[in-house]
Amino acid sequence: MNIFRLLGDLSHLLAIIILLLKIWNSRSCAGISGRSQFLFAIVFTARYLDLFFTFISLYNTVMKIVFLATSYGTLYLMYIKFKATYDSNHDTFRIEFLILPAIALALLINEEFTVIEILWTFSIYLESVAILPQLFMVSKTGEAESITSHYLFALGSYRALYILNWIYRWFLTEKLNAIAIVAGIVQTILYCDFFYLYLTKVLKGKKLQLPA
């Protein structure tokens, strides 16, 4: 555990809390992609099945349970409690185009051909692209509420901090997993365009609106 990793995890947690509070306080999930949230729930489920087999630390276990609970909580709010406000017309990204390649890639490129390792690898690949339905939704409507952009910024910061964490670990000459790093870098790159818009518009008090 290092400072970058800890800040990354906290940023991830902050993103999830921002999203939950936004939905809860406004009683609405307008502008949020249920498909991305569904993919994140799959990611956490596939990756954290190791809760049953391995113990790393109390911190690790607690965070995993929190991430699982909050991701299912978000799905509950979106698809059951506030379903009427869910903007499904704009949430049309075909998620099978993400899930199926992630399964295929996990079966082909993995460190060990065991069920738990392939599930872990699948979750890494899927997480790297799970935000695409959300970004697609923002690009389709051409705008995002400030709170939605804060959510995306916190989520992107988590990925950027994880890269700093790997650089730090690399200098400590710890062994690192190429799969996690390549997928993590891909994931971070997906946020770059959004980061630019966030820094140039949202932080100056303007709404995030894509150039026509």
Partner: peptide, 10 residues
């Protein structure tokens, strides 16, 4: 094995 493959991360 666990610490050698980023499995200690979230």
């Amino acid at each position: 094995k666990i610490t050698s493959t980023n499995h200690d991360e979230l």
